[in-house]
Nucleic acid binder design. Structure first.
Lengths: 198, 198, 198, 198
DNA sequence: CATGAATGAGTTTTCATTCAT
DNA sequence: CATGAATGAAAACTCATTCAT
């Protein structure tokens, strides 16, 4: 029953042409996912939109899922990069500074490709098993430091991450202007700081 | 003639026999959704598991989506009832009491049928158009009162609802024991109260 | 999204192999239509008789109707050719010669594939909208000349075309031998000439 | 394979109520046939529109075809009556009088229920075997008398019936106003008389 | 490698007809 | 007899994936 689906691309494209093909496929898949959703994502549709032959598609991706997985992988890589960037830029040692960094990271991560992000988190039929791992919004070490001192550190740590993520994630869709103006981030920082101090 | 995506049942069952049929269909659909997810929910699978003929299924539901919609409708009715119950039982006028009520309501709502709830909110391909409306976790009037006095009442009101919902929703899956022990609720109350008081 | 009832083939076959597939499909459809009628024309039956996979059929034809439409298109092309042939061969300027040409054309048209013709005109559920256009049996210019001089030219013109067509059309089925011997054509010519002269 | 479909109603309705049921069924069938065509004529649709239970429908008609057959039978009875009426009223012994009678009969017959007539003759999947027999437009004796004297009496007799029928039949659809004004009948009489005299 | 073609195995949905009460 | 319910059988159409050249 398991069918042991590999989620890795079949082969690395070596030549220019191949890389272009793979990119075309991934772009087409992205477009379809964002525009029409998971149900419309058929391999034939992807191939057609990408302008490549369906058999060529299977030269590079062993299954449909592999395409999506690769998409996620790339998306997550970009996200991680953005988060890292924020962590590098911002610094400061007070509680508020550190919380703000984490919120900014969450916002930056979600602004990489909001629609695609939405599709990934809301619409894809999740396999519970093999999944590409999502990047945590907060540096592990930092998280511990933040939650240190509060009565239930593990729970608190989980809570702030969950809350920060949810607020930004939903906010992107439901409160876009507040996200862009920074108002949402400000409120969120306030909420987290008050929770964490003392 | 235009396949009018009806989400309502085609006809009500009148006799005992057919009421049993409809229930069997809904139970089967629930089982499949929870166990195997949306992708596995085919009308044939539902009919087979329900032990009814596929044509009988179509006597009562015009499409697959209508089955799910009915499931949601029933789930939401139960959820609403549970929330109302909490609001009736708890009372108290202090900020903390009111926040606790709201958190308890969220927890109660999520404990009605956690797996099904997860499927509904995480896995279904959402139609942007017609959707069964989800019940808010907080009484409207109450929400306004809670957020009154803070600088950005509308944003704050949205934030506390989003945060409460997300924490409970994710907690049910990732922190089940903390939910059941009440620890998560306690932390969440602390977080919200500190944010709201002054 | 609206099932756009396309009556045109989905794509042209490019290689020998697929041309054979398409031909097999069309032949099978013809066979079934003639032998068993429209009601028996199911895509599954066509595919099976053609010895091709049902999915292959759908690679080339978007709907059952498109198959029939293609059949009609081809049939009409042949018919037109036959009619043109008659018009080229025969000539003569007297009334009788012109009438005989028209009758001969009608007969020739109906002898291209009588059974198929019968199916097309008697048995298909006509869509009022998009339909493949039937070729007129009579050259427009010729028709006008024929009916000129009579009191109600438009009506007369319609009448002779209708009458000629009907006589041959019914005759093919009910009076085949008279059609083949030429006796029916002779009578029909007599009928039309007497009507038109004066 | 033959399934031996009886085309006669299962039982004669004895009571008032039953007769009403049967009539409702036949009316509903007529409505659907005329409005939506043969393809839409499903037993379920007929029962629903007639306001009777599907099982009741099968109390009176053994198959779907039996409904249509009964419809045809009634239509033909009415048609026959109308034709007979014309034959009784009109009289006169000259060729033209007799031809006019026959044309009038054809027109009268077609005006009984033109839409239904069209459905019966153009749209129904004809079984070649068992069919309800259509009434000839011309009295047999009369036909012989008309065609007597011409060289090929049998063929001529067939021809005039075919031609008269076709002209009226097509005219009802394509030349309705000419039919109603009598112009078409006049032309048709002219055509037939000229053919028959001598 | 690229491409056109092919296909097994579904999926949704309908319909004529019968059954149980 | 009437009614609600049930159903076998099939129809139209799709899709992920492989094959042949």
């Amino acid at each position: 029953m398991a069918k042991h689906t590999r989620l890795t691309p079949r082969k690395q494209p070596r030549q220019e042409r191949s890389r272009a093909t793979v990119d075309a496929i991934l772009q087409a898949a992205t477009y379809i996912l964002v525009k029409s959703g998971w149900a419309a994502l058929t391999t034939n549709a992807v191939a057609e939109r990408a302008g490549v032959n369906i058999a060529s598609l299977y030269q590079f991706f062993p299954t449909k899922e592999a395409i999506v997985a690769e998409l996620e992988r790339r998306h997550i890589a970009e996200t991680r990069a953005k988060i890292a960037e924020v962590y590098v830029r911002h610094r400061g040692d007070g509680l508020e500074a550190r919380v703000r960094t984490l919120v900014d990271a969450a916002v930056a991560a979600h602004l990489v490709a909001p629609e695609l992000h939405r599709v990934f988190s809301d619409e894809l039929p999740r396999r519970r098993e093999e999944t590409v791992e999502e990047p945590p919004l907060i540096d592990r070490a930092d998280k511990s430091r933040l939650a240190k001192g509060v009565p239930q550190p593990a729970l608190a740590s989980w809570l702030i991450e969950t809350v920060a993520h949810a607020a930004v994630h939903e906010g992107i869709v439901e409160r876009r202007s507040d996200v862009q103006s920074g108002a949402l981030a400000d409120e969120l920082v306030k909420l987290l700081v008050r929770y964490l101090e003392r």
